[in-house]
Write a protein that binds this DNA or RNA. Sequence first.
DNA 1: TTTTGAATTTCTGTATACAGAAAATTTGAA
DNA 2: TTCAAATTTTCTGTATACAGAAATTCAAAA
Lengths: 244, 244
Amino acid sequence: MSQTVKALLELRDLILSGELPPGEKLSELPLVEKLGVSRTPLRMALVKLEAEGLVEVTANGGYAVRGFTETEIFDAIELRGTLEGMAARLAAERRPEGKRERLAEIRDCVGALDTLIRRHRLSGDDFYDYVRLNERFHTELIALSGSRVVQRAVDQIMTLPFASPNAFVFVQSELPESREILVIAQEHHRAIVEAVAAGEGTRAEALAREHSRVARRNLEIALNTRQGFERVPGASLFRLAAAV
Amino acid sequence: MSQTVKALLELRDLILSGELPPGEKLSELPLVEKLGVSRTPLRMALVKLEAEGLVEVTANGGYAVRGFTETEIFDAIELRGTLEGMAARLAAERRPEGKRERLAEIRDCVGALDTLIRRHRLSGDDFYDYVRLNERFHTELIALSGSRVVQRAVDQIMTLPFASPNAFVFVQSELPESREILVIAQEHHRAIVEAVAAGEGTRAEALAREHSRVARRNLEIALNTRQGFERVPGASLFRLAAAV
DNA sequence: TTTTGAATTTCTGTATACAGAAAATTTGAA
DNA sequence: TTCAAATTTTCTGTATACAGAAATTCAAAA
């Protein structure tokens, strides 16, 4: 692994874990010492993190950790929903190479999720499997669009951890209505695939958008409980108006 | 201006002008000589260009100029339409700080476009003014959404010059149906502002999306004529299946 | 003539030294 | 004590040297 990649991964980790809080100035020399790499790869990593949006340039040169308002977090989720909606619509409207195979693949994924959710009590391992399958569903959906351009845009917004479809699954798992939410989300999954297969672009898009609102709802719940809030990935990046 | 910015601007120019064609390997030493900067700022610029999407990493380290298929170009335009649609919907649905002033601003812009288009013959200067006003309209629309997240996503896709709303204006200006296209695009502008002002989110979104199809139509025309093709910004980046 | 292996060159990734600008600190005067 | 100026320190941006890997070239043998 190159030093640049090492610096990138470790810096991202320091930021998302909250060790480097929002607004924190990222002076190079202290970071060089902390990460054990020289300034050259460190600066490369900072440029990449700026492109990702986790870090911003300050007025007089240098970088600082970026903070996110509540609205920005909601917008990031909504943007993901919009992009997944576009992907779903394109998937439905187009006949790209290998669409049959991809559809079989995503149906398989939805089937596995079905099996999982039918269990009455979900163990910790089950939840881990759910996260994996859920991520696979979203990855496959984007792949089904066959659009590299959409792929890039989705990857971009997903660098914000709270924009990920799995961001709030662990919060959700502790709610009394957890099971109902899983059932609803799964119905979205099923219907999206159905719409894509049938070439129903508008329906596929609307469903993918609505599906992202599950994440939004979970976030709203999480923001109202301290232990929920702390479980959200990248929670330290939040700059909330009302103290939590 | 820093050496990094200099390298970034000059490299971007070399790529968009076609002097560095798609697939061209970007070896550092020749570029250092050509640009007159050292390797450090050059590499910074390459990282930024990769984030922009104009350049891609090759298998064994190093960068190459990225080429775009016809589908990717259409997708880029469609993605811009989708993002502007989201922006228009948010602008319609929300009441952000300073929305009144922003609406007045964009109405002013639409008014200026109206005056311009009413002229029977558009001079070269007129077209230049049109490009400026058209760009201002699109900038203002994004600003009206009040969403930094959407702003970033739009900026990202707009780094591809053929995704810009003005990409095909000059091609269009030489078509017999040029005037009709301007009238149609202007009706879109007018109706988008009307919908945003009235809080009609769905209508605003649909119109902004359809508006991007003007660019697509112009591109399709441009791709069928050699002199049209050559006038498209970033035309050298196209990797078309059928030779042009 | 072709193929294989060795030698050479080229290229990228990294560390570091240096310069100029910005920030912080200290010193001197009111 | 407080403010201003000057000095020192710190920090970023840049150039460059070096190491290791990859690619290329060349030579020799089949």
